[in-house]
Design a binder for these strands. Structure first.
Lengths: 227, 227
DNA sequence: GTCTATATGTAGATAGAC
DNA sequence: GTCTATCTACATATAGAC
């Protein structure tokens, strides 16, 4: 975009260790490429070589900017998880601001829609669900689940538990995990939905088409299971 | 178990190319070890070296008996999928033999319970769900889904569709995929359930404890989503 | 910060002796 | 059928020049 960085002028005495634009871009490009390849091929299936190459960077830059493959993976997940967590809490508070008691559908909507809206318009966000599914299904990434997913999950479980004062929190947690799995399948297994729904090819290309059925499915399922 | 194979007697003229007991055992041990390691570490995370070593066999035996890593993986999935598919169809026909119209719960039960009963008593069966989740979430294994999963899935989707004559089959297929995801999470994410259900440690160590909530959850979810 | 070169380990597959 | 040895390719990571 910009011209090559000019040589430092004599007056430039205030050089600090602020990262250059190019360095920041390299670090960010690596994150983007890593996100795509980890989602496509899994953690072990994606090599740092391919990630660096896809980012137009050198292999060595992965260790330099991100410390190694494992921390690169964790940073990839963290970047999305932080933003999405904030969006979900904001959606919950906005729904609460309307005054009266929240419905179960409203709570689930605050959890599900911020993600589906991102995923509908951005392939990187769509791919993020595959990373979440990998982390949620693998004890190897337990520390990532605990640090990045559990706080938000706990808030929503509490919110649902408040709607069913007579139910045990553990029963709510079970249905919450079922619901998250169903939501993730929208991204990880949409191709299977397409194949099994032979009568309507392309019906679910738009991810939004799955939001309403998903929320109705989860809400009704939770009500029945905690009763 | 038995003594060492005695040297062939002179009368043993009918030697055919039937596999020896030991060869069959090697091939089977490789399947067992591969199932365990693939489930634990994923396809790329499990090396044929480690699989052979865990089976007490040589690296070269994997290629010899199973043709290579990919076909070994496919055989691992096939062995379980065939048996489970038959159990599910049998459960469906047994439920149908009771005469009247099947309830949605009965259909889901015929799909879910054969697996959960196996998984409750056998760690290899429990681990199988992780393989199914891997295959269902990865287009790379599309041919395995189509060949081993889709036939049974199609039968159950048809069965559910018959209960909702006014609903589109594609809508049923969506809820079926949601339900399978929820079922798989019982195996892949039970540790997350345990962590999120802080108030009841150990409550879900017995997998059976999840069967009833799961079936109620899925049945009610399907009814609400296809309406 | 980037880049080349390399260190060190492991991957999957197979040839050929036994 | 098994086993040893080896082939070729690729993995992550780092040292040191620029």
């Amino acid at each position: 975009m910009t011209a090559t960085k000019p040589p430092p002028a004599a007056s430039e005495r205030t050089r600090r260790r602020a990262a250059s634009k190019r360095a920041l871009a390299t670090a960010a490009n690596l994150l983007d490429a890593a996100e795509r390849l980890f989602a496509e091929r899994g953690y072990d299936g994606a090599s740092v070589r391919d990630i660096a190459s896809a980012a137009g960077a050198q292999v060595a830059s992965v260790s330099f900017h991100h410390g190694g493959k494992e921390t690169l993976f964790e940073r990839v997940v963290e970047r999305r998880a932080s933003e999405l967590g904030e969006l979900r809490i904001a959606a919950l508070e906005k729904a609460r601001a309307n005054g009266e008691q929240l419905s179960l559908e409203a709570v689930l909507s605050a959890f599900v829609r911020p993600y589906l809206e991102k995923a509908a318009n951005d392939a990187q966000w769509l791919a993020y669900a595959r990373l979440v599914a990998m982390v949620s299904a693998d004890r190897r990434w337990r520390h990532i689940s605990q640090r990045l997913f559990d706080p938000t999950a706990g808030i929503f479980i509490d919110e649902i538990a408040a709607l069913f004062p007579e139910a045990k929190r553990s029963a709510i947690a079970v249905t919450f995990v079922f619901s998250v799995s169903a939501m993730l399948s929208v991204s990880t297994s949409r191709w299977r939905i397409e194949e099994l729904a032979e009568d309507a090819p392309g019906e679910f290309l738009e991810i939004d088409a799955l939001a309403d059925p998903l929320i109705r499915y989860c809400a009704s399922g939770i009500r029945a299971a905690v009763a």
